[in-house]
Amino acid sequence: KMQTDVEVKQEATIPLTLETEILALCNDNPKGISDKSLESAVAGYDVKQRVTAINRLLTMGKLELLKGSSGLIYRIKTPSAVGSISGVDNQEKLVYQIIESAGNKGIWTREIRYKCNLMLTEVNKILKNLESKKIIKAVKSVAAAKRKVYMLYNLQPDRSVTGGAWYSDQDFESEFVEVLNQQCFKFLQQKCENAEKETTLSPTATNASSFASSEEVLEFISKLGISKVTLSPEDIETILNTLIYDGKVQQTVVPVANGESKKLFKALKPLIETTDFARTPCSLCPVFNECQPGGEISPENCLYMDEWMEY
């Protein structure tokens, strides 16, 4: 880069016109322009000049270089906030750019340090600085409790960082999930019972009307007003999935118009009540494996059995 800079100074006039031409080209193609089409558009200049001009534009931060599906792509860089902030030095600018490129997924300190090649203390100082100016913010990730990720201040963190509807601060709201789990089941159960009350229906019709779509469940849940955040049908489906794993709900897929299919859910009754084995104290005994007739722990002197027989 240093070499090309020197050259630029030596022959300043040609590159300048070239630069403005390239910028204009890029302005016309806001999605970016590939290396080849750029080459054919500015055919009047040789390769060296073109490279010099592009390098200069890149260092000035007016262009950005992207890797597209068909090779390199040049794109006009949107005038970022960094330019408008006074008192930002080059290092801060670098860190800012790294954070900006991470988007709403955020980036971890170690990654930043790795990318900008600065000292840890320096990076920390810059981050602190930028944070106090409300240019960037730190968000705690749910993936790793102790890991902070940085992103631009005005960005909404991605679901993978916040964990979606089930997290408040990076804590998993297991109680919220449990309540939703119970309410969804209650709704489906109610639907089943209502269907069974209609004695005039045929078995198939009874069965069909016990099923509900995730949208119906969502509607019920939103009416209850137990959720502070707005839930999507997908959120409800994850909850309904937990009910499937609980063995309380079954799922079926029905085709709807234009070849798509829709998931329907129905409350499921268990095949057996609690197993009879669970009625004996031994089934839940913590020292079952140590128990031996005549041993230190034995059925003869078992305290659990004593209590159970008293009952």
Binding site: Y245, D246, G247, P270, L271, I272, E273, F277, A278, L284
Partner: peptide, 26 residues
Amino acid sequence: LALATATVLSYVQQRYGSKACRIFRL
């Protein structure tokens, strides 16, 4: 098979709790 599975699940539920049972069925 269905009955044996239901029995095993019921045992898991009783001994380890309903969340463990969820994991088990999962």
